[in-house]
Design a protein around this nucleic acid. Structure first.
Lengths: 332, 332
DNA sequence: GAAAATCCGGAACACGTTTTCCTGATTGAA
DNA sequence: TTCAATCAGGAAAACGTGTTCCGGATTTTC
């Protein structure tokens, strides 16, 4: 009942078939030790014939490593964690490392549970990620840890984050380069650090071209639509709106179109996040900032691999964003 | 260099501290064997004091199991695989099982690579999932496998899928119960089985109330908008549009509003998928079908646990969907 | 032809846990 | 008091691999 089908062959089976000892078989398959090439080849053929796949549990035990890293995410349903996850998984799988997924659902109890589980599995390292850019409390484990997206509050930990300041600045510079002179900023709640950071960068970069104060609201199309109504009343000579998210930008575009304003001829609009379903379905499609989260995930994984190998890179690493230009600023 | 910080305590350390042998310590911590309660307690305290966490690699080796299952997804970036993944992870973590993530990116080579890796890790089972409802070729491994969302072409394999027929039928019955009598169906490409299935169910359920043939196009808002133009020309007395996805439905609503038709007073609209960003941002919010994918993932995981325990459930399991009613059919 | 160097492969152990078997001690019954 | 039955815990093996050490065989050198 325990095993259906024939048991998987062990290295001793390979050794027996090749007529050598297990240690010789091990050396042959791992290209270590001193063996005649002919012996190596014989063992390889035996392994091939038996369909031998080494049991990594044995290897893990003897090597002291598990070739596994844990990914703790506070909400993987969020659209930020997922690309990070995939990027990390991509980078790790190249190094024959596996990634075990732990979704805490923002529950500290679950987080504790998962940490124990990961330590018990003797994972070689842990990636911690979240859905907000606010720093989070570090986790306490005797294993290398890298924080992605949400940095650790401890600056001596290794964290990889998005350069939100640079991203927001790039949209504003783009608008300025197009000759826009009255730029409004519509973004998310002031309680979100990312909204504050982007607003600050916008103010700093726009200078005199900034129209009024940044407008904080919710991350929704509805807020974008509402903000347009307010803006057109208070700032009639507006010629650009830089939005804190693609969702807001889409709402902005919809409302502008309903009111007969042309985007981008009358008013150029920029989004943020390059969330394809929003940015591409918007009318017109949005110029926006791609967070390059998959690359961030890859980078995080590689940093973790370094740390596992004994060369940690403590501190904060800010990853560059990429400006994606589309019709909402360029026209057709 | 290999280990920073003090090495993690082993069970021999616990045993030494408690003044017993390792086998006794093991029995004490696992509540097996015959030991005095006082001895058990002494061992437990020693473990506590040392912060002992058993090394699951050793346990895995000795038990013959790895307490790990693999999840192979052809694209986890798709929004279907993710809830399934989370549901599975949730169900597995309750049983102290870990889930290792493998994203093949639809590349057969990568899939082979991952399969070897999972077999090498001696995972206790594998979940295979995809982004389409088309059956897929089974994988060949000597380990229990369950297919989720994309069933296996081999009917003797275990597969868990969405009841697309029932889901589509439920929207049509809902429209009929509201007294709608001329129902059009706008859906995705005919090359997609899910579009064909939903169309067939719609035809069957709507009967005489069906207006024209199902209209196949792409899964986009643009197609939804375009379909409205066609429909209003060919079928002026239309009073309901059942869409094959929330994205299409959103396009439909947008276009109807632009043309001055009231949803749902003039024409009721239903979506499919309950993709919140579409269904809730639509004006009005969409009545739609929730695929309950997280529950599907949980169910898949539990079936896999059964199979691992020696009680497989071969065949196809269709999971029920849930109709979510909102303003696009009910009004305010 | 003897001594040294080199090459090849095997025996043994380590990794950390669980489990099986076994022994000595205690208890109960006759 | 003796024998059997139960209890408490230890010794050893098992899981599958990698690695260290060591001895025998072959080749090289003088």
């Amino acid at each position: 009942m325990a095993s259906r089908g024939p048991a998987l062959p062990r290295i001793t089976d390979v050794a027996a078939l090749a007529g050598v000892s297990t240690s010789t078989a091990s050396k042959a398959l791992n290209d270590t030790g001193q063996l005649r090439e002919e012996t190596r080849e014989r063992v390889r053929r035996a392994a091939e014939q038996l369909g031998f796949t080494p049991d990594s549990r044995g290897r893990a035990l003897s090597s002291g490593r598990s070739f596994t890293v844990g990914l703790i995410t506070t909400d993987s349903s969020g659209r930020f964690s997922i690309p990070i996850m995939l990027g990390a998984e991509d980078a790790l799988s190249a190094g024959e490392m596996a990634l075990v997924l732990c979704d805490t659902r923002d529950d500290p109890l679950r987080e504790q549970h998962y940490l124990r589980s990961l330590v018990s599995r003797r994972v070689d390292g842990i990636i911690v990620t979240g859905r907000r850019t606010e720093p989070r409390a570090p986790i306490d484990v005797p294993i290398p840890v890298i924080y992605a997206f949400s940095p650790s509050t401890d600056p001596t930990d290794s964290s990889v984050v998005v350069d939100d300041h640079g991203g927001a600045a790039s949209t504003v510079r783009h608008l300025l380069s197009l000759g826009r002179q009255r730029i409004a900023h519509v973004t998310g709640p002031e309680s979100h650090q990312t909204a504050r950071d982007r607003a600050a960068a916008t103010i700093e970069t726009a200078g005199d071209a900034l129209a009024g104060e940044p407008m904080h609201g919710e991350w929704s199309e509805r807020w974008g639509r509402h903000a347009v109504d307010v803006l057109l009343r208070t700032t009639p000579d507006l010629d650009a709106i830089s939005c804190g998210s693609d969702q807001i930008a889409r709402g902005v575009c919809d409302r502008l179109r309903e009111l007969g304003r042309s985007v981008p001829d009358d008013i150029a609009v920029t989004g943020y996040d390059n969330w394809s379903v929003m940015a591409l379905s918007s009318r017109p499609p949005l110029t926006t900032v791609d967070l390059e989260l998959e690359e961030l995930g890859r980078r995080t994984a590689n940093l973790l691999l370094d740390a596992i190998a004994g060369s940690p890179h403590p501190g904060l690493l800010e990853m560059p964003t990429r400006l994606v230009t589309r019709e909402s600023t360029l026209g057709t």
